[in-house]
Design a binder for these strands. Structure first.
Lengths: 375, 375
DNA sequence: AGAAATATCATGGAGAGCATCATTATTCGG
DNA sequence: CCGAATAATGATGCTCTCCATGATATTTCT
């Protein structure tokens, strides 16, 4: 029950309040000092002090005043999202996506490279290089401008950013992704499993924005899960959480087979089922049953507020969600809200951006951020 | 992704540092100011200030100096555990336990009442009253001296301290335990599911003291689980986490039946198996297989550092642990450390004490604790 | 132009933490 | 028994952070 609520120095207090001001300003429109003070709970005077400091350090900029009100017009301040850049990369079986985003997480430029599951390690890494390069070029940046990079990949990832085990891509096991990406962008590189990143993205910008406990289901050619517990991505002791698919009785291993047995192309089955094809409808039903079994195990274990379904099959929400909800109802003590991801196939790459931004924010607190040295 | 790292006032800093000093002093032996300063990271001067304040408020007392060293002998300070009392109650099917503990969690007096699963609600509540009364009397206290009470019970508990659903004790569903216990001790009453409390206790005083992520298995006439994630008890959105037993394919429903089928008294089966009885050994093997199935689901979902087995059957560690570990190995990607609870049937009541103490500590921070008004 | 409204700026004070140094109480060695 | 060494305590003054308050500035409304 460690806790480690350090407390400590006075400067620590300032750091916390500075972060609170940044959070208040981030994302939203520009605010006046009085507005910031109200949101952070600080006094106006202190707020002014903090904002001046952030202004000096380059985290905040003055925004144009808005006319209209009575009284002396207030200065408006905004988070200087353009102060830094982060890189997000999603390495999938069929495509590689890279995006450059600002400190608000707004995507400035993105690139996509088609790949195939059969591709070897070297070829795939080259595709990563091309996607990242194109993306940086498009945003008119060099690798050195990137403050942090987030990378999502299939398979288990270790703490140092190496791929420990990838079932879908055998050649992928053992790749040191962190080292590879660091060649492209020399800042910190955070590597994480793709399901986990998609979960993170849903809690950030997706449909789970207000959920503290959430289970994300990756429903696609592979089936996986990512967990957010108490507002934080849950990794586990060896970064192997959410791997419920390894348990045969929970059905995730065979889930997808029902679909491929019914038709050559998995995606077509949903269309056929929608059109009234009995065999396809049956296949979908069996798929959902198996998906729900593993999902129920997660829901019963964690009792989350929400289950979010993403992955390739989430496009077929109409034939998936309702049956899934019914199946969950069958097993669960309390069936949580079930929602379809709204992020489509951008989930993973957005999660990668979020991962990089989290790293940047940690360093705001410590004053170790790049900005300090730039000014 | 809220976060809510408020920051705030200067007094907040003092609160945090005061708590840090208390934590440093709690449990261990008396310390000198310099020792406290080293542990908290504060300067000696500030430590002195904080300690003086805590001395005034009654949280800390001076302890006798220890002779022997060279130089001016230092004053020693200790946490004044005797300043307050908490009550812990475990309401089980076969027994009710109540303990009174001091602020260190040291048990001052305990009482035990035998009950039966068949007992009605009223009778059981009367037994709770008797156990609590005997316990308070033995410690020479009245209910008003109790700063907070923790209560553990079978079944699901809602946020307000009512039993929502108890499968083992049908009559128990709907009891407002918080209200009932508040009649005995008018302070705050925290009610929680027994498996969760046992998990909490293991992380506090049991074998999982240094684990941040832990899965506790209640192995007994009932089978249940409690989860500690990131050092905190995980409750879930509706306090229904760990209920993996509701999923039939995971075997916890039928697990215990293997044992009762082999012998009238479940406890005997382990003894028989240990003695070499083939049928009993088989029954135990099947039991462990089923137990491990649900446990694997939890382990795969969460990837905890440790699995702790408690409950009535944990006395039979010799025939349980090794097979369980082997079964987990079969299903899990990374098998965590598996350990037997060392708390025996005290786990739940100790967890209840911890729950009450957590509540007290929260109030230390706010200055809302009883002590302030006493002095 | 004057009143009202609202924001910024300046001053002073309180709380918290820290560094420094003088003072005090021991033990140890001779 | 006395002085040196050792280590804790106590006092002083500084800085940092936050806050309350009131003076000043800039705008709109009448």
């Amino acid at each position: 029950m460690a806790g480690e609520l350090s407390g400590g120095d006075l400067s620590r207090l300032r750091q916390l309040n500075a972060l609170a001001v940044i959070k208040a300003l981030q994302g939203g429109p520009s605010l006046t000092l009085t507005e910031v003070a109200k949101r952070t709970g600080l006094s106006r005077a202190s707020t002014e002090d903090v904002v001046r400091e952030l202004l000096d350090k380059g985290w905040v900029a003055e925004a144009g005043a808005t006319a209209g009100g009575v009284g002396r017009p207030a200065r408006r301040y905004r988070f200087r999202a353009e102060a830094g850049r982060v890189l997000g990369i999603d390495i999938g079986d069929h495509k590689i996506r890279a995006v450059v985003a600002d400190l608000d997480g707004a995507v400035l430029h993105s690139a996509r490279m088609p790949v195939t599951p059969e591709m070897g390690r070297v070829e795939r890494l080259e595709a990563v290089d091309r996607a990242a390069a194109e993306c940086l070029e498009g945003a008119n940046l060099s690798g050195g401008d990137v403050w942090a990079s987030g990378v999502g990949t299939t398979g288990l990832v270790d703490g140092a950013g190496r791929v420990m085990l990838s079932e879908a891509l055998p050649e992928w096991t053992g790749v040191d992704l962190a080292a590879h990406v660091r060649r492209l962008a020399p800042g910190p590189v955070l590597v994480e499993n793709d399901s986990k990143l998609a979960a993170l993205a849903e809690c950030w910008r997706g449909v789970a924005r207000y959920a503290k406990d959430m289970v994300f289901l990756l429903a696609g050619l592979r089936t996986g899960a990512g967990l957010v517990i108490d507002g934080k991505l849950h990794r586990g002791f060896a970064n192997a959480s959410g791997e419920i698919g390894a348990l045969p009785v929970l059905g995730w291993i065979r889930a997808q087979e029902h679909l491929s047995a019914a038709s050559g192309e998995a995606g077509d089955v949903f269309a056929a089922a929608r059109a009234g094809d009995k065999a396809a409808a049956n296949a979908v039903r069996r798929y959902v049953k198996d998906l729900a079994l593993g999902a129920s195990a997660l829901v019963l274990a964690l009792d989350p507020q929400m289950v979010v379904v993403g992955g390739g099959f989430s496009r077929s929400a109409d034939v998936l969600i309702e049956p899934l909800r019914r199946e969950l109802d069958r097993w669960c003590i309390r069936t949580p809200e079930v929602r379809m991801s709204a992020l489509g196939d951008e989930g993973v790459v957005l999660g990668a951006v979020r991962l990089a931004l989290d790293d940047v924010e940690d360093r705001v607190l410590d004053g170790r951020s790049p900005l300090v040295s730039h000014l």
